[in-house]
Design a protein around this nucleic acid. Structure first.
Lengths: 382, 382
DNA sequence: ATCAAACATGAAAACCTTTACATCGTTAGG
DNA sequence: CCTAACGATGTAAAGGTTTTCATGTTTGAT
């Protein structure tokens, strides 16, 4: 009994305090107005709160909240008054309070080893576009493959500042699963590279298929001795692209010559080194299929340095279609990754996960597109 | 009197509620533990709160907060107990609650017309690195020069989700100053392009000086007839670079030939168009100073198409040193923008503004660096 | 006319911190 | 011995939402 009474008085007290505060705000707002725009750069301006709006509209804050978030649930007339009050005060929901209450920040953290990577940026644009369209914000973390930084970024997750995670890194961030309390993985989606040894959903290009198409293009131009530059036993992407290459050759009943398959880690330097090695060994192809554009560039540089006339004497094909592919001489024939689309699909998938849906597939593979430029020619005299 | 009594009881009640809740959390945590890692992907896991920590350490939540944020203010023994409790629970401060209370989110919003722009990414890396080092997070907004999107991103500012703003856009975001309540500008710093008609602090490269150095380099190679490609009456960057070009010529007492100054908006296409125009008019320079690398690329493509031997017959110089500059044939001699440094300085300045400091300068200009490659040669027979 | 269901709104709890103020014990200075 | 100052800690308010539950009102069916 006593408790109940206390309660009631407590309520009253509280309510009065709120209204009073609301009035304070209004007064301050008017003052600020009178002062003109002088305080434009002032930092801790009092912004209008939901209470100010409620006071003006003559309703409770609950109603204001509903009018904004579930317009169908309030009477037309009330909604009109609230809308008007919002306009008058310039009210915007305080996202912090909202997130605190809803335990959801509507933010996505993107972890990438290097934001400057040309392969990265357009995927990022896609991610950002889709997120923004759906009312989410995008937080970026540039890890530079540094374990400390990766761990550090997890604070965004554990402190509720981000609801989900996009991984460009190809592995789970260090720092997950160390401490008992730390082991909580947020919903996440991998992009660019699949996360090894895990069931993290992946969105990316179909590397096997793309590489097969690329090889078939070379074959269609009459090439039979096609080198593959970029063999690797560790990089998943390289392995898939090599498999596509092999599949295409086998499909056309062309024997795979192991001397035409050279190691490479996907850097320009590795492309050049591999080419030089071929000349040293004197086992030459008529066409080079490179694991990516950067490698192809190395090959082209090496061939140009040896004064070969491209693409007459050698054809070179890349993969990815990164920005400089069209600027090299000869401009690079390659497979274009649908980066924008990859970003959009990945974000879409992540938001679905956040909404509690279980995706039907753990892997979304998009088609790459053959971009014909000038680095591949029909095989001629040679 | 009565009020006071009510108050006291209210407190007790509240306090009991808190402890009870804290115990609940602990129980749940143990349960979760017992269940193993099954709930790894579970979304709304209850995380440990400051109250759990307080309960375990046997202190009040205020003390926990102090132990974490102002370690000097609590006794050694207490601090030890709190630290231990934090470790045991895996507690992380809830950033939302913290931001709400402190009215500060420790987030910076970056507004850029196109995140994919090669000029952009390394500045972004610099911005991000510095922000992260100082405990700030970085939120990106890709506006695509769309007024609607720019306005839309302001919600991050007005909803307190970001404390400051980095502008790549060269203008204030649309939507500021429209409504009475909307006119509040957060602290901001411009980068890449200064914001016209405003006193927004700018961090960037010294375009005038850089362009002067570039021109002098061409002069030092014996060139006297130097074209400037990229004249503009609207773009501040173009205007500054043209002024640097003129200053260098005048410094060496070389007359400025207006027929050698051509319009250009900084795109590759504009570089090509300008070059073609020169051949049509038959007023030819020995060297092309281009307003940026993209323009230079257009010039090179055009000259290559006309089968000129570069750099023997024409020298071409760029500005920016974007990623493909070293891959073009001939590789591009250019002025390198210290992008990482620009990003770091800009973020440093913004954080200083946020801390309430008034910067001494409204403009931080960094030196660009001459990168000598193969597109410029000493003038020879011609 | 009666009752249930539907509808519109309000009250207050909950989300989790930080911090001004109060309290209490200890120490130093007079 | 008294007081002041100080150091360590606790109490509760404040920050601005969303949402459950309760309350009162209207509608519709019987």
């Amino acid at each position: 009994m006593f408790d109940v009474k206390v309660y009631t008085i407590g309520k009253r007290y509280n309510r009065v305090g709120r209204v009073w505060r609301a009035l304070q705000h209004l007064l301050q707002a008017e003052n600020a107005d009178a002062r003109g725009c002088a305080g434009a750069f002032l930092q801790h301006q009092k912004l209008a709160t939901i209470e100010d709006v409620a006071a003006i509209a003559g309703v409770s804050i609950a109603t204001v909240s509903r009018a904004i978030n579930e317009p169908g649930k309030v009477a037309d007339e009330t909604r009109r008054r609230v809308t008007e009050a919002v306009a008058k005060t310039g009210y915007t929901t305080n996202a912090m309070a909202r997130s605190l209450r809803m335990r959801r920040s509507n933010m996505i953290l993107i972890l990438a080893p290097d934001v400057g990577d040309p392969n990265f940026s357009n995927i990022l644009v896609g991610l950002e576009t889709e997120a923004s369209k759906r009312g989410y914000g995008v937080l970026i973390g540039n890890t530079q493959n540094d374990a400390t930084r990766e761990t550090d970024y997890l604070r965004f997750i554990s402190s509720n500042q981000a609801d989900g995670l996009i991984l460009f890194t190809g592995h789970l961030p260090y720092g997950f699963g160390n401490e008992a309390g730390e082991s909580r993985l947020p919903p996440m989606v991998a992009v660019n590279e699949p996360v090894s040894d895990s069931d993290v959903p992946f969105v990316g290009v179909d590397n096997f298929e793309g590489s097969r198409v690329a090889t078939e293009h070379l074959i269609s131009q009459g090439h039979r001795r096609i080198a593959f530059i970029g063999h690797s036993t560790t990089k998943a992407v390289n392995m898939l692209r090599e498999r596509g290459y092999r599949a295409a050759l086998e499909g056309q009943a062309i024997a795979v010559d192991p001397r035409l398959i050279l190691d490479g880690d996907g850097t320009t330097e590795s492309g050049r080194a591999a080419t030089e090695q071929m000349f040293v060994r004197d086992v030459l192809p008529t066409a080079f299929l490179c694991v990516n554009d950067a490698t192809a560039l190395g090959v082209i540089i090496s061939l140009n340095a040896r004064k070969y006339d491209l693409p007459r004497q050698f054809s070179v094909m890349g993969f990815d279609d990164i920005s400089f592919a069209s600027f090299v001489t000869p401009s690079l024939t390659t497979m274009k990754q649908p980066r924008l689309k990859i970003g959009e699909e990945a974000m879409d998938l992540l938001l679905a996960l956040l909404a509690g849906k279980t995706p039907e597939k753990k892997e979304v593979l998009l088609r790459s597109e053959l971009i014909v430029r000038n680095s591949v020619s029909r095989i001629g005299r040679e």
